[in-house]
Design a binder for these strands. Structure first.
Lengths: 162, 162
DNA sequence: TATTGTTATACTCTATAACTATA
DNA sequence: TATAGTTATAGAGTATAACAATA
């Protein structure tokens, strides 16, 4: 288990200070590590609700006013369409979302949250917010907003479809 | 395949603008998506060299002046010790690193890059830097530095061992 | 012919438990 | 007894290919 909360390990061993290594300020490494921390905490907070970060994100999107097609969801979430199928199956089996026929195009069905799904989404958002704050404990509110804006810059610069 | 470079898809379908949804500014989502983009590009750049982001990070650390134990490496990389074993096995099979006996504690062997490993690490760093710049195309150099500093704040606030 | 959703499959990553050899 | 490294195994996440229904 990667989360080391043993609070023991008093032995310095080799004394290598890896945080002073050059890798420690390498962004691909930092972003991967921060994401691992974040996802682990959030999944932990979501598990009692029967969700994880992926089903949670998907459920969230199905509460939006304009229902999206699965293709749009897969583009936005950066998941393969086949993965979206499995995630919606999961949510549908729990009665949290419904697949509705789209009169305009019978291929492109719309996925919409049920009333139960909307309620659970609200609860889940609160739980995830608490988990996020823990991970963000080292940053001020201003820094958190700054981080959000920078990450948006990375994510949006790559047009999902040009 | 999640990377949509089909350049076609002229149909707006439902017209749902998911980037204007509230999820789009949610940090756990943004950080996961940015990391997916980053890792995919970097792995693509590293594949011809026989590496991926995980073996690359590990190889990098073994070029540091003070050799770390596997326990220290697993703490720093936020990986389970058993995963580090497999990654080092991989690197060792390619002749990139060596496991050396530690005279002070025969349990705690030291993993050190070979000359071949050091050369490859340099090549890999250049390749990863190019890939990173692509992902960072939307950010100025100053913003990239800011992002690095903010991510360090998240990662370091959780002491690997208190 | 092209696209949406779907099924199937294989591969990587992550999580957990137990074992061994040293300390 | 406790720790470093290791083995084994199962589950989650990711990548690809192919197919049926619809456009």
């Amino acid at each position: 288990m990667p989360a080391k909360d043993t609070a023991a390990s008093s032995t310095p061993l080799s004394g290598a200070d890896l945080w002073s290594s050059s890798l420690a300020s390498h962004v691909p490494f930092l972003i991967a590590r921060a994401r691992a921390l974040m996802v682990r905490r959030c999944n932990q907070a979501l598990r009692p609700l029967g969700l994880n970060v992926r089903t949670f994100s998907l459920l969230w999107l199905t509460t939006e006013p304009v229902p999206a097609t699965q293709r749009e969801l897969s583009d936005f979430l950066d998941l393969d369409p086949s993965q979206v199928v499995a995630l919606i199956d999961d949510l549908e089996a729990q009665g949290l979302v419904e697949r509705r026929a789209n009169p305009a195009d019978r291929r492109a069905r719309q996925t919409v949250a049920t009333e139960k799904g909307r309620r659970l989404c609200g609860t889940a958002q609160a739980a995830v917010d608490r988990a996020t704050e823990e991970v963000f404990a080292g940053l001020t509110k201003g820094e958190q907003a700054q981080l959000t804006s920078l990450l948006l810059g990375i994510n949006r610069q790559k047009p999902s479809r040009a």
